[in-house]
Amino acid sequence: MITIKGLTKKFDDLEVLKGIDLEVEKGKVVVVIGPSGSGKTTLLRCINILETPTSGSITISNSQLDFSKTVPKKRISAFRSLTGMVFQSYNLFPHKTALENVMEGPVIVKKESSANASRKAEQLLSKVGLGDKLHYYPFQLSGGQQQRVGIARALAMEPKVMLFDEPTSALDPELVGDVLKAMKDLASEGMTMVVVSHEMRFAREAADEVIFMDRGIIIERGAPEQIFSTPKEERTQQFLQMIQ
């Protein structure tokens, strides 16, 4: 579903991604872990083309973008619509209700009728457990509820891949569970997902593969049990000790 080859990203002189190769099969869940500043967010933002990679290529489904050439804007927005992004700080639209947040993409970008979009948005919000909060504004929702609206908003565009950037790290511990449950449900429905998260339990229960990143490269990858219990690389061991 996703194939990333030789992906690099430089900010001026700072090389944040130093040649990432990654493959994610359809329906698989990959969890990315690694120290702060190792380039995890940048990797997701490159897949969503919120950052333009410096070189390398990304293929999703059958569309390929090769960043050694300049990529036309039209292709970027088409490519972006293949992925849905869930942000660490939710980034909900504060001037729109939960329902309107979810309807916005389908109505404005896909030009769906608002009756249709509204029905679909209601279903999605019910699915993430917010069927009774349709007309609440973000400020009236808890962080966990806001993040679930964020998930529904991304799903409304029917992406092929969902990207999550530390979706629970801004949440109070008691609110984490509902968000992780929504994500697990999604995984069990067969959604292809790339999740940056240090939630071990989620990784153990839902991930097909765990990737450890440090300083812009993938150091080690494997099944969750293997990475967490018997990491091969010293840097992975050190990092896991630090967060446990």
């Binding site: 942000f87 639209f93 001037h95």
Partner: peptide, 29 residues
């Protein structure tokens, strides 16, 4: 916040759409 533009882009909006639907309504307040 920049994240508002990015949230707009991430659901497929172009510059004009994000400006008109997301940024200007908040800026007007």
């Amino acid at each position: 916040p920049k994240g508002q533009w990015e949230a707009g882009y991430s659901i497929g909006m172009n510059y004009q759409q994000a400006l008109k639907r997301i940024i200007l309504p908040q800026a007007s307040r």
